[in-house]
Amino acid sequence: MNKSLAQDGSISANKVPEATALFWIIKMMSTTVGETAADYLNVNLHFGLTGTSIFIGSLLAIVLFLQVRSARYIPSLYWISVVLISVFGTLVTDNLSDNFDVPLGITTAAFSLALIATFVEWYSKEKTLSITAINSFRRECFYWLAILFTFALGTAAGDLVAEGLSIGYASAALLFGGCIAITALAYYVLKINAITCFWISYILTRPLGASCGDLLSQPTSAGGFGIGAVTTSALFLVTIVGLVFYLSITQKRIKIS
């Protein structure tokens, strides 16, 4: 388990997992679940945007409280937090667009500015934006606030591209996947700053996951595969649970050894 120096000089456990291949796979799937689960609660269960937002927001508040209170990184707790915040971030954008008629261009710009402001304040207080040292209450608060804005921004930007360009779900997935590939190339080949590349990729995986979720769940008449929101959400949730269980077992083995 990663450890680093806290501000008081003591050794403190990092509360965030390392950005490995499994991290990105689970993260992308969580964004897909966020997209399909929000639609399922809103439309299929007739919660409505307001009811869905209150329900998910309440769950998120409870889980984030437990996450912040925990003294170490717990894979199941961390990834439940990510899944819930992905749903809530989607709902924030959907509420602004559908309930308040805020144009996607404005929400994209607003969340971009909010994310930048979070990064500026985070850096001014902590002198780093690295996820390898999320080992204090203040750093973790900055981290989760930034995560929320990345999901809201990714939703707004993804919807803006999908609606503005009308390129379809498959093309949108290829577009955002290509942008992530370019970011990876910039990091590995051009040696662009790792922190910058991480946060760019984190933002881009949101519209990528949403595009993949829509591609699988939407009917064939709309350009999807017609699997449905329920089946898509269940498929990705089962995969996420399996991978998180693997990470939990692996972590325990590392601690024992």
Rank of each mutant, 00 (worst) to 15 (best):
I26T: 09
I26F: 10
K27H: 13
M28G: 15
M28W: 09
M29A: 11
M29V: 04
S30W: 04
S30Q: 05
S30Y: 01
T31M: 05
V33C: 09
V33L: 09
T36S: 14
T36K: 01
T36M: 08
T36E: 01
A38T: 11
A38V: 08
Y40E: 08
Y40S: 10
Y40I: 07
L41N: 07
L41M: 14
N42G: 00
N42H: 11
N42W: 09
V43W: 10
V43I: 14
L45I: 08
H46R: 14
H46Y: 11
F47Y: 14
G48M: 12
L49E: 07
T50I: 15
T52Q: 04
I54D: 06
F55W: 12
I56Q: 05
G57W: 09
S58P: 04
S58Q: 04
S58N: 02
L60H: 04
A61W: 09
A61S: 14
A61C: 13
I62F: 12
V63A: 03
V63R: 00
L66Y: 09
L66N: 01
L66P: 00
L66H: 02
V68N: 05
R69F: 06
R69N: 13
S70F: 13
S70T: 11
I74R: 06
P75E: 09
S76E: 05
L77A: 02
Y78N: 03
W79D: 03
W79I: 01
W79P: 00
I80Q: 05
I80T: 11
